[in-house]
C-alpha cells in the first residue's frame, strides 16, 4: 500500500485530553505518544495515513486530523461543509 504521507496534520487540544491512551494504542503508524504530562502528543506527524481512528475514537473530542488543502483555507471549507448538509 502506498502511503500518502504529509497530506495531513494531527492536532491535539491538551486542555480537553484526559490521557486515556486509546489513540496511542490503536494508531496504525504510531504517530502519537503519551507525554510526561500524561497527555497525548504528536511525535511522528509525517507518518499519519489519515485513517481517522483517533478522531472518531477520542471520547473527549481532543484530536483533529486536518488535511493539507483544508489547512490552507479551513474557514472556507467549514462553510462549504455546512452548505452540503441535506436541506429539510
Amino acid at each position: 500500500m502506498t502511503k500518502k504521507k504529509e497530506l495531513t496534520e494531527v492536532f491535539i487540544y491538551p486542555d480537553w485530553c484526559k490521557g486515556c491512551g486509546i489513540c496511542v494504542a490503536f494508531c496504525p503508524s504510531q504517530v502519537l505518544e503519551l507525554g510526561p504530562d500524561g497527555k497525548a502528543r504528536v511525535i511522528k506527524g509525517k507518518e499519519c495515513v489519515n485513517c481517522g481512528f483517533c478522531e472518531y475514537h477520542c471520547p473527549d473530542f481532543a484530536i483533529v486530523v486536518k488535511t493539507k488543502p483544508l489547512l490552507k483555507n479551513y474557514a472556507n471549507h467549514a462553510q462549504q461543509g455546512q452548505k452540503a448538509q441535506p436541506q429539510k
Partner: peptide
Amino acid sequence: MAEVTQLIHHYLRHNKKFPHVLCPGCG
C-alpha cells in the same frame, strides 16, 4: 475527516464545563 468530527462543536452547549465529567477512556 476533520469537517465530520468537528461538527460536534455545533451541537454542544459551550456554556457547560469541558472536558466533560466522564472518566478517561469512557466510551
